[in-house]
Structure formats: structure tokens, C-alpha cells
Deep mutational scan, measured.
Amino acid sequence: MVQRGSKVRILRPESYWFQDVGTVASVDQSGIKYPVIVRFEKVNYSGINTNNFAEDELVEVEA
């Protein structure tokens, strides 16, 4: 279970941040499909630095 402030590695192959490390900004408990919002240092092609992920697409590298 990841929690706010954890450092996580992204396992979603189609993601711009695949294999990159980001910080968990928040975790939604309402039961949505992609409840974990992760914030990154670098921006993607659209200038965005956050994205939603499912918990099984993340691996915690640092608490």
C-alpha cells in the first residue's frame, strides 16, 4: 500500500514516465480505477508533471 509522500517507480509501459521515480501526491479511497496521483520532476510533452496510476502499476522504492 503506497501512501502520500512515498517514492514510487512506474511500471506502466505506455506511460511517459515508465521506469521513472515520482512522489505520491495523494491516494483516493473512493474506489476509482486509478486512485494514486504521482508527481514527477520532469514534465511530459504537454507540460504536465502529474498523472494517475493504479496501485499495481507502482512499486515503492522509498517510504
Rank of each mutant, 00 (worst) to 15 (best):
M1W: 15
M1E: 06
M1H: 14
M1I: 11
M1C: 14
M1T: 14
V2A: 05
V2H: 07
Q3F: 06
G5K: 03
S6D: 08
S6K: 08
S6N: 06
K7Y: 08
K7S: 06
V8P: 02
V8F: 00
R9H: 03
I10K: 02
I10Y: 04
I10D: 01
L11M: 10
R12Y: 03
P13K: 14
E14M: 08
S15G: 02
S15V: 04
Y16M: 02
Y16T: 02
W17V: 01
W17R: 01
F18D: 00
F18E: 00
F18L: 02
F18S: 04
D20G: 05
V21G: 01
V21L: 10
V21M: 04
V21A: 02
V21P: 01
G22E: 03
G22D: 03
T23S: 04
V24D: 01
V24W: 02
A25E: 15
S26A: 13
V27A: 03
V27F: 11
V27W: 06
D28Y: 05
D28G: 07
Q29N: 12
Q29K: 13
Q29D: 12
S30C: 08
S30F: 06
S30W: 06
G31K: 09
I32A: 12
I32H: 10
K33R: 13
P35N: 13
V36I: 15
I37G: 04
I37M: 15
I37K: 15
V38W: 00
V38K: 01
R39D: 04
R39N: 08
F40E: 01
E41M: 08
E41N: 10
K42W: 08
V43I: 09
V43N: 10
V43Q: 10
N44H: 12
N44I: 04
Y45F: 13
Y45C: 15
S46G: 09
S46R: 11
G47W: 05
G47I: 03
I48N: 11
I48W: 08
N49S: 09
T50E: 13
N51I: 07
N51A: 15
N51T: 10
N51C: 15
N51P: 01
N52I: 05
N52L: 05
A54G: 08
A54W: 05
E55N: 11
D56F: 12
E57A: 03
E57R: 01
E57S: 03
E57L: 02
E57F: 02
L58M: 06
L58C: 07
L58T: 02
L58Y: 03
L58D: 02
V59P: 01
V59F: 09
V61S: 02
V61H: 03
V61W: 06
A63M: 12
A63C: 13
A63V: 12
